[in-house]
């Protein structure tokens, strides 16, 4: 039986009907057409589907949509500040951190949560924070560089 559900995604409220067994990933992509969030394994192994729930990274393939009612959900579509890219997005584009781009949304959100918690992370802290997000293209180093560059921009904005 489909159930009514109300989700707050990127500050906007969405009302939809869905089976209670659907994951947040499925509802985002299929009910809300927010396809920026990707599926890579649907077993919580690859991190491609990471989104933020009340600012904390979660794997949307492992969370039921029903559980997320009332929480603030942030997806890649909600990262940019109007027409302007978020500093993480700009840094990823500039540093070669997005090659095929498929793991990028999940990594951007995981990195955003890290920088909010720790505005000045060491390289090994970035490695640790991103260790659940698999990337097969870059070897991660340009991603680490991009997070570092974005952290600097964000710190300067805070001054």
């Amino acid at each position: 039986m489909k159930q009514p559900i109300s989700l707050i995604v990127n500050g906007e409220r969405y009302d939809t009907l869905c089976q209670p067994n659907l994951t947040l990933l499925e509802v985002l992509r299929e009910n809300l057409q927010l396809t920026g969030t990707k599926h890579g394994c649907e077993l919580g192994e690859c991190g491609a589907c990471a989104v933020l729930l009340d600012g904390e990274p979660v794997l949307s393939c492992l969370v039921l949509a029903m559980e997320c009612a009332g929480q603030q959900i942030t997806t890649v579509e909600g990262l940019a500040r109007g027409a302007e890219l978020h500093p993480l997005q700009a840094a990823f584009a500039d540093h070669g951190a997005a090659q095929c781009g498929y793991c990028t949304p999940g990594i951007l959100l995981t990195a955003k949560a890290l920088l909010e918690r720790n505005p000045c992370p060491s390289r090994s802290e970035v490695r640790e924070a991103l260790s659940g997000n698999l990337c097969r293209c870059t070897g991660y180093l340009q991603i680490l560089d991009a997070v570092d560059a974005a952290a600097q921009v964000l710190r300067e904005e805070q001054r």
């Binding site: 396809t35 890649v76 700009a90 990823f92 584009a93 095929c100 781009g101």
Partner: peptide, 18 residues
């Protein structure tokens, strides 16, 4: 900057299942 960059960092790039 990569020509393909903006679409890939904003979630606008359309992969087959999208």
């Amino acid at each position: 900057p990569r020509k393909e960059g903006a679409a890939k960092v904003t979630g606008k790039a359309v992969y087959v299942d999208d």
